[in-house]
Design a protein around this nucleic acid. Structure first.
Length: 181
DNA sequence: CCCTGATTCGC
DNA sequence: GCGAATCAGG
């Protein structure tokens, strides 16, 4: 289905209201993808919105060398590492621990100094491991202050090829709540 | 992994 | 004009 005036108007309206491209795509239905929405938005020159949403000042990134796909069905694509180190300054979400699965977001704040990531989960002292206890199958998520003697690593089993256990792997970036109208 | 928007370019 | 593929970022 093409872009009828009605659909374009709806697109403009929702975009200005701050809905994400994927949400608008779902709203329009008919197999419209978020890419279609974004593409249309650009053609309409509607890029600017009230709320920056994400990705703020993007002055200029690479002018995309020459990916060119479409015709070649080669399946290469092997590695893809994803390096994300521990930032000294980071935005954390304070949670309330009620159990292993009951986490409630109560406040979002930015902290100055290092904060033990995912300290919510309790690791029995007998399972804690130090630097020398790490191997390719142990979760390398650090807990505590590295400069302190009581510093240790999660140490639980990590998925093959992954540096962290499942719990800690999903800790970094997982949608707290999926937008639903 | 989930997600966001930005960009290019064959169609 | 359209939008999949890709990129860059959180």
């Amino acid at each position: 289905m093409g872009w009828t005036e009605e659909r374009v108007e709806l697109l403009k309206k929702l975009w200005m209201e701050g809905l994400s491209a994927s949400q608008i795509a779902a709203e329009l239905g008919d197999g419209v993808t978020r890419n279609a929405v974004i593409g249309k938005v650009h053609r309409l020159k509607l890029s600017a919105r009230a709320k920056p949403a994400t990705t703020a000042p993007r002055a200029r990134t690479t002018a995309r060398p020459a990916p060119r796909r479409v015709a070649s069905p080669s399946t290469g694509s092997a590695g893809a590492g994803h390096s994300s180190g521990m930032a000294r300054r980071q935005t954390v979400v304070r949670t309330q621990v009620v159990g292993a699965t009951a986490l409630a977001v109560t406040e979002e704040m930015e902290v100055e100094s290092y904060v033990p990531p995912a300290a919510e989960i309790f690791i029995p002292e007998s399972e804690r491991i130090g630097l020398l206890g790490l191997n390719e199958h142990t979760c390398k998520w650090p807990i505590g202050d590295p400069l302190t003697p009581d510093f240790y690593f999660c140490g639980r089993e990590s998925e093959e090829g992954h540096p962290y256990c499942e719990f800690h792997s999903r800790r970094a970036y997982h949608q707290v709540e999926k937008r639903k109208r």
